[in-house]
Design a protein around this nucleic acid. Structure first.
Lengths: 144, 144
DNA sequence: TATAATCCCGAGTGAATGACTCGGATATGA
DNA sequence: TCATATCCGAGTCATTCACTCGGGATTATA
């Protein structure tokens, strides 16, 4: 029942983009340094984030990444779904699941997993990057 | 963000014990048959459940397993913690975690993970076996 | 117009985990 | 005594995780 580092890194990286939001895009390498994440691994993560249209990449020298939407319109759920797939404790309660398993109608545990999924979504889908950035005590993001 | 099959099997197995609760203990092999789970794998799961004092094993012929407490005093959280460890989306927000990570005080994402953890616990720790068994429409547990 | 900086992309890798299996030892009711 | 159980440690095989490697395409800037 653990989040992968991919998910954690993605949220942290998105928060860097949020807090350093300016005219100029910020380079992946810079994000990696600030958050102490392997740049090459972070690259893969940004591929997912870009495909999910959460960030836009600017190529060429002095390029980088920017949020694709305002920070109050991107939730933690958006980010996690982009890099980790559907938020569901078990496969049979995925929102977009094509077919239910054949014991769905008699499955007692299914209701539990649905309620668990919903309680997770409730937190993740209502917490935006702006919310999170707002809780910061204006510390630097650098290592402490 | 997926539960392992171990956790799912554990809950299903405990529900079998709940619903077939009688004088006699029920054999592991029977539970495995009813729920279509590998008996040898289920054995490992019952080791965890027994160590967590959620079930008691009765050895010898016509032995088996029983709930160690009434079904309304065992929660889904008890079961999952027994077989999967602490319920926490990331390590740094485990309830029994010995030391916080060194960036805990400046870590923005930590609060999100704590809220996520709490929302998960809220569901899992308030749902008992009795609750779940109560929702059943008196169908047989056999495959359908 | 070089050139360095940057994003973009597919593939590979080594360790860890997940989901089991195997082979037994121990206890006990019939 | 013997079949039926729980108990227990170890082994296996596939998958996933958390990266690394080696390039190609694009673009500001010197």
């Amino acid at each position: 029942m653990r989040l992968s580092t991919k998910g954690q890194y993605a949220v942290r990286a998105m928060l860097v983009l949020t807090m350093r939001q300016a005219e100029a895009p910020i380079a992946l390498r810079r994000v990696a340094e600030l958050e102490d994440i392997s740049a090459q691994y972070l690259e893969q993560i940004f591929v997912d984030l870009r495909k999910a249209q959460l960030v836009t990449g600017v190529r060429g020298a002095s390029g980088g990444y920017q949020l694709a939407r305002p920070a109050d319109q991107i939730t933690a759920g958006d980010i996690l779904r982009a890099v980790e797939g559907p938020i569901a404790p078990v496969e049979c309660v995925q929102k977009d699941h094509p077919e239910a398993c054949r014991r769905a109608n008699i499955c007692i545990t299914r209701e539990l997993w649905m309620r668990l999924r919903d309680s997770m979504s409730a937190v993740l889908d209502t917490t935006t990057l702006a919310d999170m950035a707002g809780t910061v005590v204006t510390n630097d993001t650098e290592e402490g």
